[in-house]
Simulated assay, not measured.
Amino acid sequence: MSTTTFAAVSAVKRRSPDGFDADISPQWTIGGKPNGGYLLSLIARAAVAEREHPDVLAASAHYLRSPDPGPAEVEIETLRTGRGSSQVRGRLVQNGKTAVEALFTVGTLAEGEPYWQDGLPDPRLDVEPSFRVPGTTPLGLPVAIMDEIEIRLDPDSARVFTDGPSGRGELLGHLTLPGGEPFDPVSLLFAVDAFPPATFDISPSGWVPTLELTAYVRAHPAPGPLRVQHRAHLITDGRVDESCHVWDSTGKLVAQGTQLAGIRL
């Protein structure tokens, strides 16, 4: 069980007008490698620090190399400051080498109901799931991050860990931060990359490292666990593209993401 919060492990400390110090937690890792959404959230904390526009609206990150847990630096560059939104570039640097390069659009999220929304959460997400994702993958890779967060899968998705893949390439379930900490726009960047690879429902594999991740944050979520639908679309040439839709406890779409990842089946 976690003894800290996501806000604490993703915190950054300003050391210059455009530079921040960060500490990558060893607990937010898969096989000793930091989760990609977690690293993006670290950079986002710096990107919105003390800005007129406090919320991340969109983010796109490329993962050049996997940093190690421990001290790192975040460098921020303002590309444009606008009335309704601004664009910011961020880099996560460790030992003088860039590990993650990201671009952000930041602004202020509006409240209220959407004018139009494509689709509602899968009805299976309305049922409180009971199966909690364990701290090891189907092939035995240690996943320390699962001792921090709580992911509970619906019965069909849980069979990936009990009976093997179904071949659908889809995982459905609920996501909770340590201690039930409320989600905010920055932690939603982690949410779109929090679930196990949807490829587990196709074939067991080892680490599935994120190469590129794009996320849209659509609204401030209501309190409570998030409802997540994670899908794999195409596996070819040692790469897979996945999509993730995230709804809050009221059924409002609050974030969505797509990513390209490496995979060895």
Rank of each mutant, 00 (worst) to 15 (best):
T162V: 10
D68R: 15
G107V: 06
I145M: 15
P185T: 05
L103D: 00
P182M: 08
L64Y: 08
G70Y: 08
L139Y: 00
T162H: 06
V74I: 15
L139P: 00
I76E: 01
V100L: 13
R83W: 02
R91T: 01
P196C: 09
P178A: 11
V160K: 09
M146S: 05
T81V: 13
I151L: 14
E75V: 14
L141F: 03
T176W: 09
M146W: 07
W116A: 15
L188P: 00
D122C: 09
R65M: 11
A194S: 12
P67M: 15
G107Q: 05
L153Q: 03
L175A: 08
V160Q: 04
E150Y: 03
V88Q: 01
A58Y: 04
P121E: 04
G173C: 11
H62M: 10
F161I: 06
D147S: 15
L141T: 11
L125R: 07
A72D: 03
V160C: 07
F104S: 03
L92W: 10
S86N: 04
P69C: 14
P142D: 05
G140F: 09
M146R: 14
V93C: 07
F161M: 05
V106M: 04
V100T: 08
V143P: 02
L92P: 00
V127A: 10
P142M: 09
R159T: 09
P67V: 14
D147M: 10
F104E: 02
P71Y: 05
D154P: 02
V106I: 15
G169Q: 03
E170W: 08
L103G: 01
L177I: 07
G82C: 08
L175C: 08
A58W: 03
D193W: 10
A58P: 00
E113N: 09
G107I: 07
H62V: 11
L120Q: 11
L139S: 02
D118G: 01
V160S: 02
T136P: 00
G119L: 14
V143N: 08
V100A: 03
Q94P: 07
G107R: 08
P114F: 06
E75A: 12
T98M: 11
V160R: 08
A110I: 04
T136N: 04
F131S: 03
A58I: 04
E181I: 12
D154L: 13
F104R: 06
E148D: 13
G164V: 07
D193T: 10
L103E: 02
L57W: 04
V133N: 02
F190E: 01
V88A: 02
D68C: 11
P69M: 14
L153T: 03
I149L: 15
L188D: 01
R159D: 01
V143W: 06
P123Y: 08
P197Q: 06
I149M: 13
L125Q: 04
A194G: 06
Y115W: 12
L177W: 03
E73P: 01
A191E: 02
S130G: 00
V74A: 07
D184K: 12
R65W: 10
A158E: 04
